[in-house]
Design a protein around this nucleic acid. Structure first.
Lengths: 105, 105
DNA sequence: ACAATATGCAACCAAATGGTTGCATATTGT
DNA sequence: ACAATATGCAACCATTTGGTTGCATATTGT
């Protein structure tokens, strides 16, 4: 997993509209673009651009069919983001452990 | 934990320079701004602005002392980001479980 | 006292971002 | 065939972002 990939993931999640989209998809039901664009407070084309940003970061996948396009969450990409943070925390905890041992010695 | 707080966290991590700064701090050793600005490929003031962005998102804390300012990671904020993703994944897995049961029935 | 070090602040700039509107196109239902 | 639906593409715009340079200020070491 490259550094830049992780940056893209976090950048994708670091926007209120995009995070809301992700949340709406997190229940596993793929939605088509039209549905997904509703209640976001922006135009359909505005929503489309945000969805494209999520696609570019692989946070979401598009599945065209007929005249509509289903948008589906990519849980594996979410896991990459979570794993990255977890790795940072692991280093952090390791350091705290070392400090504790030093204090006790 | 508010939605906007999480957005700020992800936005803070969604930049190559800032992510690199976070990684350098993840070993638990606080560094002062000068040290932190090195090897980032940008000027000190440029780095300063990125550090400020991390401060605003509470990803990092500043501890002034004498003429230097130590920058320290805030692991609790990292945990908030990780927890948010984990919650999304939990919803996702729950849905997959429901689909599995439906298929077996 | 003075030089060196560590930082802060503000103005400025180019590029990216987040949004809009307008129009074109493909699929579906009657 | 035709209307309605779902989407795509491009131009455009204001604001934010990521970076710079220049200068000021406070602390430290000799």
């Amino acid at each position: 997993m490259s550094q830049t990939a992780v940056v893209q993931i976090f950048k994708a999640l670091g926007d209120p509209v995009r995070l809301q989209i992700v949340q709406r998809l997190s229940n596993g039901v793929p939605l088509c673009m039209g549905e997904l664009s509703k209640d976001l407070g922006i135009s359909r084309q505005g929503a489309r651009k945000q969805i494209q940003a999520l696609v570019s970061a692989n946070v979401v996948q598009l599945h065209p069919g007929g005249r509509e396009v289903k948008v589906q969450l990519d849980a594996a990409t979410l896991a990459q983001g979570r794993d990255f943070i977890a790795a940072l925390e692991a280093q952090w905890d390791q350091r705290l452990q070392a400090l504790k041992q030093f204090a006790e010695q």
